[in-house]
Amino acid sequence: MIEADRRRAPGVPEFEQLYRDSRDDLYAYVAGLMKNRAAAEDVTALAFERALRKWDRFDPGRGTARGWLFGIARNASLDELRKRRRETELDFDPPDERSHRSGQADDERFEAVSTALSRLPAAEREIVALKFFSGLNNTEIAEATGISPSNVGTRVHRVVTRLRANLEEDSRHGK
């Protein structure tokens, strides 16, 4: 059995479905957390590769596939952040032009939100990425991050509150 066939043993169609459903969401989460496009691409690919390798160990009884996948991606992202922090500072990319055009907000609003978002600490930015970029529900966020589902809502609210405060502050200062 060649390597590729071995890797594509039973359950791979389900994984491919998970991949199709989650590819952009996962990338959005990782990019939102990493704030660097190249790093996000590497980590996203690595997360899917790890997930495929561990797919036969995934236990649906212990949670959703998306929560499990995002947990893998989270670990890969944080490992990458640790590594890059040791080796070099991570360069932050400017906001994605594609996403700019795909949103409903105008340029000014988009810039304001992006700026306010970038001022959030990574832990809060992660919540935004999981909730608003990737569209995970609270249960999936809890599975991915290891916090309790009841606390997810609290954190989301707190992050949004801070984000609104940032926006108002930026607005007052004419940013």
Binding site: Y27, P95, S99, S102, G103, A105, R164
Partner: peptide, 14 residues
């Protein structure tokens, strides 16, 4: 509106 704005800033893979 903020939720929509945040969703709009979602990064997309090229």
């Amino acid at each position: 509106q903020l939720a929509c704005d945040l969703k709009a800033t979602r990064p997309q893979p090229n």
